[in-house]
Amino acid sequence: MKISRIVIVVLAVILGLDLLVLIGVAFFDSAGTPEPVRKVIRIGIIPDPDRPETEKTIQAFFADCCRAGDSYELRPCYTHSYEEAMAGFTHGTLDLLALNPACYLQLKRENLARILAVQKYSEEDKRYNHAVLLSVKPFRHLSATRGSRIAFSHRYSMNGYMVPYRYLQRQLPEAPERWFSSLTQTGTFRRSFEQLQSGQVDLIAVDLGWLKHFEPYRSAPDKFHILWLSPELPESVICVGVAGAYFGASVVRQFVGRLWEEAQRNAVFNRNSMAFEPENFNYETALRQLEIFLYGDIKNTDGQL
């Protein structure tokens, strides 16, 4: 009686062990759950030597976006110059590009980009988003600047070159290259300001918001004279290639959609230094005005811009 029960238990245990072994072998023979494939998206970031925090801010923003959209992997690309970023974006090497609206308009005119998100400034920053022509000499009028020396930052800088240069083109009776005795590009606002202080140049084009926080200027603003203050300019943008880049239009579309969703969340925009928001009507209006300012009714041009 007992032995028969024991035999049954023994057989049951053996069968159970065999079953366990089979399950173990079958389970561990599989390669496991496949790792999800995350699409790689390259974003071009143009370094701003005067505002190094920009890179970090953009990086943090996209990190949040990518965490939310776990199907994507963002790879930032810090270009050496605006030219390199523009060329990369134009030829599809970069998928996204953060740049000023003037450059965006340039790409848009070639139908190479569209806006993905707009950088959101604080109200104070927005008030100071102007381009200025700054001088040490007290020029009373623009006509007094003939023969003087002028310095810009670089040719893709909206406040440091594109808008002031366009203004000069519009206001001066002849091309700025001929009106001024010298026209140089320093690369950065800081270098332009230093040259102005040292007397190497008589006039520089800088950003008002930057100037407001620049300590040498804040310590002695009376030494300098603002010759011209531009209208309020639109904020910087993140744009995406219209063609959807080379790695797949569908991927970019999905990422853009994800970015829109993430951009609409307040948590993403609660950043003081740098934040983004979807493009709205006001921004489109401002962008249109800038486009008219830059490209409408050009008289004094040497073929540039």
Partner: peptide
């Protein structure tokens, strides 16, 4: 099932396209 294989091939394809550009 490797994500690496898909990504690697996509990146190399993109690089090949970039070299052609």
């Amino acid at each position: 099932n490797s994500a690496f294989a898909v990504k690697y091939l996509a990146e190399k394809k993109r690089q090949a396209d970039a070299y052609r550009r």
